[in-house]
Design a protein around this nucleic acid. Structure first.
Lengths: 144, 144
DNA sequence: GCTTGTCGTAACCATTAATGTTGCGACAGC
DNA sequence: GCTGTCGCAACATTAATGGTTACGACAAGC
């Protein structure tokens, strides 16, 4: 599967902002988060932009600008983040339409779609069981 | 998520071979399967080669060559196929190691790995619940 | 109103994975 | 030998992701 770290980086950013705010700061900058995640600030801004569209974070501009949480970490789940940053379905269908004159070619897509839908629903409910509060707790529980 | 149709195409090929054999034929050619899936025979041969390594299909060479099932469709699950054709983990970690001097950077990977492992285990058990026999039945149940 | 720091976003490049395509040797049955 | 098909290498194409640079927009503070 394509090495897709978007969910990981988004969770990292949210945990970072959450912890930083608990330490008394108002906003976190993309520069700071990028430094922690060892990537480029623009990558962080792009990701956080998608989280902002989903209502998970807010941003300020101007001097003293930066990012803050729009909700408590405990009210955000990995499913919220997943839906904000991941585009398509987990499993794709054929690129080109299969031969509709063939019984298998005709029936395979509806059949697989039904199966995949059920599996993705299970995946969603698993993601929905984990809050970002859980993530931050696990992060802080890792021994140094 | 990267549009990855390998599992779909592999299931298509297995269902096709299974049905073809039930119609009294010994082996199916990559050319026939490719025609049904609307792709290139080499793509099918590559995929079936991975399924052969996993012990799901067999191939013959020479005149009258082609592919046949190594086991009953009812004894193969989507998990068998998934493990045969999908390489890496569902969710990837950071490309570059996060800043180990930062609390979040240090703890994020162990934390996410624990969460992801649980989710992937659930995904596996869902895939294991569906046999290729189920897939073929669903395919044939689609109205024309 | 000028300066400053940060976001917002576009543009481009690099890397990687998946897929498609061609070519040709290997093999086995006739 | 001749034929049809696999096995496999090599290369091209496409798409997604991520990294980088650049620059305008914005708002706070002076």
């Amino acid at each position: 599967m394509s090495a897709n770290s978007r969910l990981t980086i988004a969770a990292h950013a949210l945990a970072w902002i959450g912890l930083y705010q608990r330490q008394g700061h108002e906003v976190a900058t993309s520069e700071q988060i990028a430094s922690s995640a060892n990537t480029n600030p623009v990558v962080i801004r792009r990701l956080l932009g998608e989280l902002r569209k989903a209502g998970l974070v807010e941003s300020r501009r101007g001097v003293g600008a930066g990012w803050s949480l729009a909700r408590e970490l405990g009210s955000m789940t990995l499913l919220d983040v997943y839906e904000a940053v991941e585009a398509g379905p987990l499993f794709a269908m054929h690129r080109a339409t299969p031969d509709q004159g063939c019984v298998v070619g005709h029936g395979i897509q509806p059949a697989m779609r039904g199966i995949y839908d059920g599996i993705e629903e299970t995946l969603r409910s698993e993601l929905a069981r984990v809050t970002l509060e859980d993530v931050l707790r696990d992060v802080l529980a890792v021994p140094r």
